[in-house]
Design a protein around this nucleic acid. Sequence first.
DNA 1: TCACATACATAGGCAATCTATGTACTTGAG
DNA 2: CTCAAGTACATAGATTGCCTATGTATGTGA
Lengths: 142, 142
Amino acid sequence: MPVERQVTEDDALQLVLAVHRLNRTLRLSTTDLPPTQLIVLSLLAEHGPMRIGELAARVPCSQPTATTVVAVLEAAGLARREPDPADGRAVLIILTDEGQERITSVARREAELLDRRMAELEPDEREIVLAATPLLRRLAGR
Amino acid sequence: MPVERQVTEDDALQLVLAVHRLNRTLRLSTTDLPPTQLIVLSLLAEHGPMRIGELAARVPCSQPTATTVVAVLEAAGLARREPDPADGRAVLIILTDEGQERITSVARREAELLDRRMAELEPDEREIVLAATPLLRRLAGR
DNA sequence: TCACATACATAGGCAATCTATGTACTTGAG
DNA sequence: CTCAAGTACATAGATTGCCTATGTATGTGA
């Protein structure tokens, strides 16, 4: 029976700190693919082809940043671009097979690292973390 | 009765993505105090005076980064330095009253923003997020 | 006493992101 | 049909935050 309670200022601060520090730890351990590139690839994998502007809104980042990131992914063969048939100004960014494979390999690496860290938590604590994951994603907004 | 299950590759990827995106969202909404500065202040608040090297290890960041951040905090009046009586090479970084107040004000701001985002979750979902917070922090390592 | 280790500071550079602006295309009012 | 305004992406330039490599002062043990 969970106790209904307010979100205190300390709760908020602790969550913010936890996210910042976990982000830092992740960046240090996974030099594989920069965060923004990984986010873009996963958006394409989840939602299918998408415009630059839509990517920028969902990442979230500025439109020029999305342009740059897409150029890098394209050069690496992880995504390709195609003119949007519905609008001559726009381009559709499409995940390549190689891009899909890269996501898979990153996921495998992350799972290994996470497993090692998760080993220090109790089983029920691991459940809480996993249950919180989609919620954190929703908190990040679309 | 929680079902005991493996941490899958997708679980890991989703957690990583959630952290990266939440981090991004936080950075965009709180221009108040850069993440590293906030982390350093909160470490000082939680554990008391600390050396530069220990700050670097706990943030985590490189020692030169810790030096720079401390210099900024010092210039802003949020922290001060004192020679370590036990070692002439070292300095102790100490949180000032103003630094403590700043933490409080940041926490208040964050709580407001978080409340707004949390409003989109169900009460039991909010509980899960709050329960996960200290666990995430432990995942980030010491 | 001196070689080595340690703690912090400084120098230099790199990567990621932003704002401001330019260019090509589309749209809608007249 | 035409052209002014809007939209989508690209480019330019600057900023920020972080790192590695190195320097300087202090401590430590043979």
